[in-house]
Computed example of a mutant assay.
Amino acid sequence: MEWTSILAIYVLFWVISAFIILPFGIRNHAETGVEMVKGQADGAPVNFKPGRVLLYTTLLATFAFILFYFNYTNHWVTVEDIDFFGSIERIRG
C-alpha cells in the first residue's frame, strides 16, 4: 500500500472519528445553569474543549486504522466473508 493511500485512509478514519467524538461531554446553558450571552444560540456548548476532542479523535482514529491495516495485511475479513447475497458471482459473471 502506498504511503499516500495510508495517509488518505487515516484522514478518513480521523474525520469519521471526529464526528463520533464531538457530541460526548458537551453541555449547553440550560443543562449547566450558566447565563446566556445576548445573541447566543440556545444549543451553544458551554464547556467545549477542542484539545480533548482532538486527543480522543486521534486515539480513536489511530486504533481504528491499526485494525484496518492489520486486516488489510492479514486478510482476516475479506469481501467473500461478508458477501451474504452472492454479489461477487453476479459481478464476475
Results as ranks from 00 to 15, higher is better:
Met1Lys: 03
Met1Leu: 10
Glu2Ile: 06
Glu2Pro: 15
Glu2Tyr: 06
Glu2Arg: 08
Thr4Ile: 13
Leu7Phe: 14
Ala8Tyr: 10
Ala8Pro: 04
Ala8Thr: 12
Ala8Ser: 15
Ile9Trp: 04
Ile9Asn: 09
Tyr10Asn: 02
Val11Cys: 12
Leu12Phe: 07
Phe13His: 04
Phe13Val: 01
Phe13Gly: 00
Trp14Arg: 00
Trp14Ala: 04
Val15Gly: 01
Val15Asn: 00
Val15Pro: 07
Ile16Gln: 01
Ser17Cys: 08
Ala18Lys: 08
Ala18Pro: 08
Phe19Pro: 05
Ile20Glu: 04
Ile20Leu: 15
Ile20Pro: 08
Ile21Pro: 08
Ile21Gln: 12
Leu22Met: 13
Leu22His: 13
Leu22Phe: 13
Pro23Val: 03
Pro23Trp: 10
Phe24Thr: 10
Phe24Trp: 10
Gly25Cys: 06
Gly25Phe: 02
Ile26Gln: 12
Ile26Ala: 09
Arg27His: 09
Asn28Ile: 00
Asn28Leu: 00
Asn28Ser: 09
Ala30His: 12
Glu31Trp: 02
Val34His: 13
Glu35His: 05
Glu35Pro: 07
Met36Asn: 08
Met36Arg: 15
Lys38Tyr: 10
Lys38Cys: 09
Lys38Trp: 09
Gly39Tyr: 02
Gln40Met: 09
Ala41Trp: 00
Ala41Leu: 07
Ala41Cys: 04
Ala41Gly: 07
Asp42Trp: 02
Asp42Leu: 11
Ala44Gln: 06
Ala44Gly: 01
Pro45His: 06
Pro45Gly: 02
Pro45Asn: 03
Pro45Ser: 02
Val46Trp: 07
Val46Cys: 10
Asn47Trp: 04
Phe48Lys: 00
Phe48Asp: 00
Phe48Leu: 13
Phe48Glu: 00
Lys49Met: 14
Lys49Val: 12
Pro50Met: 09
Gly51Ser: 06
Arg52Ile: 12
Arg52Ala: 14
Val53Ala: 13
Leu54Cys: 11
Leu54Glu: 01
Tyr56Gly: 08
Tyr56Lys: 11
Tyr56Ala: 07
Thr57Lys: 06
Thr58Glu: 05
Thr58Val: 04
Leu59Met: 14
Leu59Ser: 04
Leu60Gln: 08
Leu60Ala: 09
Leu60Val: 07
Leu60Met: 09
Ala61Lys: 02
Thr62Val: 03
Thr62Arg: 00
Thr62Leu: 09
Ala64Asp: 03
Ala64Tyr: 04
Ala64Pro: 07
Phe65Ala: 00
Leu67Trp: 07
Phe68Thr: 01
Tyr69Trp: 14
Phe70Ser: 13
Phe70Tyr: 12
Phe70Cys: 12
Asn71Trp: 05
Asn71Glu: 10
Asn71Gly: 02
Thr73Trp: 06
Thr73Ile: 13
Thr73Glu: 15
Thr73Ser: 11
Asn74Gly: 11
Asn74Ala: 14
His75Asn: 14
His75Gln: 15
Val77His: 02
Val77Tyr: 03
Thr78Ala: 02
Thr78Met: 05
Val79Gln: 14
Val79Arg: 13
Glu80Arg: 11
Asp81Val: 11
Asp83Gln: 00
Asp83Pro: 04
Phe84Val: 09
Phe85Ser: 13
Gly86Ile: 12
Ser87Phe: 15
Ile88His: 08
Ile88Ala: 10
Glu89Val: 10
Glu89Lys: 14
Glu89Ser: 15
Ile91Asn: 12
Arg92Glu: 13
Arg92Val: 13
Gly93Tyr: 07
Gly93Cys: 06
Gly93Leu: 08
